[in-house]
Design a protein around this nucleic acid. Structure first.
Lengths: 110, 110
DNA sequence: CGGATGTGCAATATAAATGTTGCACATGCG
DNA sequence: CGCATGTGCAACATTTATATTGCACATCCG
């Protein structure tokens, strides 16, 4: 019962990032601004439905947002959320870095 | 042929982070310094073999390292590698942030 | 030596992720 | 209106991930 909710949420975000196709989608959205699932699927070797599913995973993880414009749905990167996650990871890894350095120091100089 | 190798590698790292059990293992290793698979499995609701598999995933992703000490194998976090990945993600997300802000500005002031 | 403990590998079971096809429906435009 | 285009949902196939059990082997220690 001690497993923090943060872990589950963080895991979801990283899992969303843990797919080459989704990283490609993010990169495309990051440079073009916004696009529909159909348009994003064109240069990729997968169907439109597969891309739509990937986009849904990214949206569930809070990494992209979608807005409906008449007939089509436009997806765009939520760069703020992404940077926020990245900075959290930096903080955690830095903390471990210091912690481990501290453990090493104590081991050498008890 | 244009898919960068970086993506596949990055996806592997993020996929390794995309599991609550593995995040827990990293957190434990980050605070205790080093431990065996058997010891790490004790407080978890999974078997030692499952933990060993998770550790192998983390090691393949370059996030942990292992050293053999006689009978047991000690795992420890490679905090450097972890922070490096995190900083890469920050750089990418920041770049997209600026890029998207730029796109917005152009759209508003053509 | 001999029991206790830690590892690794194999076989297996189950769940989840990924991708496809097919179809119904909504929206834009000539 | 009527056709082209974009979406969403469902059914299905396939692969991958996760976890378990069982067993053989190595290593530590009384």
């Amino acid at each position: 019962m001690s497993a923090p909710v943060v872990d589950a949420r963080a895991a979801e975000v990283f899992a969303a990032l843990g797919d080459a196709t989704r990283l490609t989608l993010l990169a495309t959205l990051g440079t073009t601004g916004a696009a529909t699932a159909t348009r994003l699927a064109e240069p990729l070797p997968v169907t439109r439905q597969a891309v739509a599913r990937h986009l849904r995973v990214l949206e569930d993880a809070g990494l992209v947002r979608s807005t409906k414009h008449g007939r089509d749905v436009l997806f765009r990167v939520d760069a703020d959320a992404l940077r926020e996650r990245a900075e959290w990871l930096v903080a955690v890894s830095s903390a471990w870095d210091r912690r481990l350095a501290d453990l090493r120091t104590r081991a050498e100089r008890p």
